[in-house]
Structures are given as structure tokens and as C-alpha cells.
Amino acid sequence: MEAGNSSKKSPGGHGENNLFHVIHKVPYGDGPYGRAKHAQLIQKDPEAAIVLFWKAINAGDRVDSALKDMAVVMKQVDRTEEAIEAIKSFRGRCSKQAQESLDNILIDLYKKCGKVEEQIELLKQRLRLIYQGEVFNGKPTKTARSHGKKFQVSVKQETSRILGNMGWAYMQKSNYLAAEVIFQKAQMIDPDANKACNLVQCFIKLARYDQARSVLNDVLRGTLPGSEDPKIKKRTEELLQELETLRSVLPPMINIPEALNLDEDFFAGIEKLMSEWSPMKSKRLPIFEEISSFRDQLAC
């Protein structure tokens, strides 16, 4: 049960007032949280909603929801830094069940304001929880919602999603070799067309055009989930055009020693996790052989 839930449902379930709450997804009660949601969803007044969410948190009124909703509204009105500080300051008042959602919101906030290092560190923390069996509160799946529809997410899918976000973060640091390794791992766990396109972008930046074309062909053949998405199709066409243009010019200079900046212990944890999912496979995955090959070249 969520901490500090002072809002109470109105008696009965068939009145006009109850129907209003159901249609507009506004909670019952006249506490600060209920008024905050009314300001957010009915009045469309984000600034007033933020003030009321603050009051709800301080009053202990549905603190889990109040903090998450306030951070989301702050992000919408470009108060991202404040939202980050709010989560850091008040997440200690929230239940254990709310921490995962708060982490996901925090990752999005870090992404929006360009805090790449903080984003990577938090993603690593999320993966460590998976290693420790603490993700989804110890359950093998969780119920997620997207565009009003509920669906089940497995631990494997969550691991791949987190790795995909981490790979994107390394791309923002122009560390394309690290990003490539991470995307490869993510695709081994739960492949999709979006991560494939990100992997192609890494290969292009590393002037590995044959590998880029091979992955692009998988997307073009429609063999990966998400290949039929119009946005993915458009991006695939753009990457194909970029690839064909670059094939006719000299490859870019790549600083391999600088790019090879990987947390070996951390990636060993991913390898261990994957070996538990696929015990019949080799304990040492091909991508790590590739890392060793780069290291041997540098040692020469």
C-alpha cells in the first residue's frame, strides 16, 4: 500500500461525480494530491499542479504518485534540473515499490538535460539490481503500460532495454566502440530493429561498413521486431544512404585506445547473467573475444 495515502474514495460507484473521476482519471478526495491531478489533467495548469504536488508530498498524501507525477510535469515545462533534485531529495519518503519507476524517470531527466555520466551510472545500478535478483521486486516479469495498453515485460527484455539506453548514452560521448559492444550484448538478449539501427550507426562511425550493411540487411528483410515501424523504415533508408556515400570516401580516423574504455568487471556481470539464461552456450561470448583482440593489438 502506498505510503501516506490520505485521499479517500467517495462512497458509492454509480454517481455522476464517480463517472467524472473515471473518465478523466482524476483521483477521489479533496486532498492536495487530488487537487494537483485536477490542475494537471482538467485545468491544464502545470505550474499550479506542481505547487499542489509539493503540498501533497509534504502532507504525506500519496507521496509515491505525487513525486513521480510532479517530476513528469516539471520535465514537460522544462524544469528538468528541479525535477532531478526533487527526486533525489524525496525518494527516501517513497515506498520500495516506487523506486524502480523513480529511477526510470530520473534516467529520462538525465537524458533530457545531457547528464550522460549520471545516466550511465544509474543504468549500471539498475543492471546490478538485475544481477542481484532484486529487479521487479524479485518477480520474473512486471506489468507495464504503453499508449493505454498493458503488457508483460520479462527480466531479459528489461536487461536489453537498459543496455540499449546505455549504448545510446555512450554514443552521446562519441565512445562508439563501447556503444557497439553494449548494443551487441543487448541484441544477443532481446533483438529489435531500433537497437540494430543504433548498432549500424556505431559501425559507420568506426568505418566498419561491411558489418553495418549486414545489420541493415536484417532490418530491411524485416527479420527483427519493429522493422515495420515507419520511423524505423525511414531511419534505415537514411542509414543506407549514408553508408553508400561513405563507402566512396576514405574511412575516418579512429582513436582506438581512447574508445576502448570499458568497465570489464561490469561487462563480466552481463556475461555471467547471460550464461545463466543460456547455460549451454560458451561462457565467453564472441564480443569479449573481440575486446581481447583490440587489447592484444594495443599491447603490440
Rank of each mutant, 00 (worst) to 15 (best):
I130F: 00
A86G: 07
A36P: 04
V153N: 03
L129S: 14
E82P: 03
L123Q: 13
K55T: 02
T141K: 10
S89T: 13
L106C: 05
R62M: 08
D61M: 00
Q157N: 10
R128I: 12
L123G: 13
A83N: 04
T143G: 05
G133P: 08
V73Y: 06
K111N: 11
N137V: 09
D45L: 10
T80K: 06
V135T: 09
V153Q: 12
Q43V: 15
F90H: 14
A98W: 01
K44G: 07
D61I: 02
K37S: 05
K44I: 11
L67D: 01
E158K: 09
G138D: 09
E121I: 05
E47A: 12
A144V: 10
Q76V: 05
S89G: 02
V135N: 08
C94R: 01
Q132E: 15
K156S: 12
M74R: 11
Q43R: 15
P32C: 01
I130N: 06
A49L: 01
L67F: 02
R126F: 03
V116M: 05
R91Q: 13
Q119S: 13
I120N: 04
G92F: 08
N104D: 14
H147Y: 14
Q76R: 15
W54E: 02
G133Y: 09
N104S: 14
A66Y: 03
Q97G: 07
I42V: 15
Q97H: 11
P140A: 11
D45C: 08
N104T: 14
D69W: 03
L41V: 15
Y33F: 14
I57R: 02
R62K: 12
N58M: 03
L52G: 01
G148Y: 06
I130V: 15
I120Q: 04
G133C: 07
Y131A: 12
I120R: 03
F136N: 10
